[in-house]
Design a protein around this nucleic acid. Structure first.
Lengths: 132, 132
DNA sequence: ATGCATAAGATGCGCAAGCAAATAATGCAG
DNA sequence: CTGCATTATTTGCTTGCGCATCTTATGCAT
């Protein structure tokens, strides 16, 4: 019994890997070619766009995009260098930082979003089931 | 309508990313710590174990593990260096290579498999639905 | 036979990821 | 106030990935 369950889990994991890798790969390529963004960078912009006042603390953002803190730190550095977001220090706790979308960031997100949605429609129709 | 569908797809994609990253991260850590294998290396050993005569062509293997051809080439180099697999040239088409499990590779897979299954059970119970 | 398009793998390159250690700011115990 | 554990973020290091390109092998057309 346990063996059968385990093998079913392994098979499901294998399918999950396949769906993820395929979509991620295409998203990275298309978003990169058309808008100069990686899929992770797009996710960050999206999280910020949806957040109150378009700003979030680093650690919250790291959770939201499923990235390690160090990876997020560097990703934010890149987006800041490109002028799409800003680090804003937090007066209440000087250890924390808020990350906020700039106007350029909002624009870039608005431009890139249709591309992302299109890829999800084209490549994800057979990969992404309806939400449970 | 299209907008709602697109947003649902985006939300589903976000969940897929989360499930994948979480599982992949834990698998890499545990398999690495306990058996010196990455999750991708484990997948390669598993594909070979399940294959006829425990050998597959590189390109077939690359598909099976959802990896680029170059990534697989290097992965195979590492596994070969560790003595877990062998490259065997194909007499019918000298461009092709077969990759085969060694005895050490079979043993390593047998050792690592319970770890992988345990992680899938512990971390994946809420991530991996039953197969459709 | 010769040439050329194609296929399978390997390799140079740059990039982004995770872990672990470093830095900096808090806050609490004495 | 001083020291120490804790929290938030950054940075050094190593590793693995994908893309583009190179090399070798096929095989078909002439």
């Amino acid at each position: 019994m346990s063996a059968r369950t385990d093998d079913a889990l392994a098979a499901e994991w294998h399918r999950l890997m396949g769906r993820y890798q395929r979509l991620m790969c295409v998203l990275d390529r298309e978003l990169g070619a058309e808008h100069g963004l990686s899929a992770s960078e797009f996710e960050v912009l999206q999280q910020l766009e949806q957040a109150e006042e378009c700003s979030l603390r680093m650690s919250v953002l790291a959770d939201g995009v499923h990235l390690s803190q160090s990876a997020l730190s560097r990703l934010v550095t890149r987006l800041e260098r490109d002028g799409l977001i800003e680090r804003k220090s937090c007066s209440q706790d000087r250890r924390s930082l808020f990350v906020a979308l700039t106007d350029a960031g909002r624009t870039r997100y608005a431009d890139a979003r249709p591309t992302q949605r299109r890829v999800l429609r084209e490549e994800g129709s057979d990969c992404l089931e309806q939400p449970a």
